Computed example of a mutant assay.
Amino acid sequence: MGREKKVWYVTGASKGLGLYLVKQLLAEGYNVAATSRNKEDLENELGTGCASFLPLVVDIRDENSVKQSVEAAVEHFGTIDTVVNNAGYGLIGSLEELSDEESRANFEVNVFGMLNVIRNTMPYLRKQGSGHIINISSTHGFSGGIPGFGVFCATKFAVVGLSESLSAEVRDFGVNVTVALPGHFRTNFLSAGSLGVPENQIPEYAEVRASQKAHQERINGNQPGDPEKAVAALIAISTMESPPLTLFLGKDAYDAADKRMLSIQNEMDRCEELAMATEFAQ
């Protein structure tokens, strides 16, 4: 279909929302460059490649690996139109029990890997004067009050913040930015391969262990969100003339956001007199 269908570059494409997205894009005739750390997983799910599909083995923590993949996508398709930063993984553990190495590893993938992709795709988008970057955060990038999710929330709050700044930086180049905050969708995100836990767990953190057990056993496989509908929404916003900067996905994400905004407003109202009395006297 040539330039009738735009070129997508999607990270974390061998599982989760990324896999659903790539399958739906290809079914609708889009051109897709899809990345994963594992070549076998990628090819088992999506095939070895064709004119409209380019599978790429990428370690998004390695900027040179990302750079080479972006160059390969541009060489294959001639351009990139839509970038989806989907690669990431969950981490459950209290801030005390998660080691520095475990915490930094989550940031390396969820935040710095995303920055590697943005840094290496923006020159093409900026030069062509168009494009759309979709960064996948989480409902936990807006509502963080869940035991055991501190580091993961910190990575996803960071994604929201950098996306908002990126939008302000690149809008004059004709590039749109959307940060998606999905709730619980029925993918393998809560499975062992996508959800990290601390090596050294502290028994005293009963609420953290209960949260961990609930996510791994009760919530996993019973998430209310349909991933097919989630990725259809992502494709739909990519066709908008003015796509949203912030996109909450799922009723649970909307409910959590409403609850958090109400809580913030209540706290602002309660402390307004105290907080406003901090300026120099006129």
Rank of each mutant, 00 (worst) to 15 (best):
Q216T: 12
Y254V: 15
P244I: 04
A232I: 04
H184W: 08
V170D: 00
F173I: 00
E217C: 01
E217P: 02
V177H: 01
L195F: 04
V179S: 08
E273D: 10
T187Y: 05
N176T: 03
F189L: 14
P243K: 05
D255N: 13
I235C: 06
P203V: 14
L181R: 01
K229D: 13
L190P: 02
E267V: 11
M261I: 13
H184I: 03
K259I: 02
P198S: 12
N200V: 13
M261N: 06
I235H: 07
H215T: 05
G193D: 10
D269A: 10
A206G: 02
R260A: 03
D172E: 09
D226H: 13
K229Q: 15
Q212D: 10
T178V: 00
A210G: 02
P227S: 15
D226P: 04
H184Y: 12
N188T: 14
I235M: 14
D172A: 09
A233N: 07
A253H: 09
G221H: 01
S263W: 10
I219F: 14
Q201V: 13
M240V: 02
G174M: 09
K213T: 13
A233Y: 02
A192W: 00
I235V: 13
A168G: 09
Q216W: 00
E267R: 15
E273Q: 09
R270T: 07
E217G: 01
Q223C: 06
A180F: 02
P203R: 13
T239K: 14
P224W: 04
L245K: 04
R171A: 07
Q212C: 08
A253G: 15
F189K: 02
S238F: 05
D269G: 04
S167Y: 10
P182M: 07
Q212R: 11
V170E: 03
V179Q: 07
C271K: 08
N220Y: 13
V175Q: 01
A168M: 12
R270D: 06
K229G: 03
G183E: 12
K251N: 15
A257D: 03
F173C: 02
M240S: 08
P227K: 14
F189H: 02
G193S: 01
Q201E: 15
A230P: 04
G183I: 13
A180S: 11
P243C: 08
I202V: 11
P244Y: 03
L195E: 01
K251G: 10
I202Y: 08
Y254F: 15
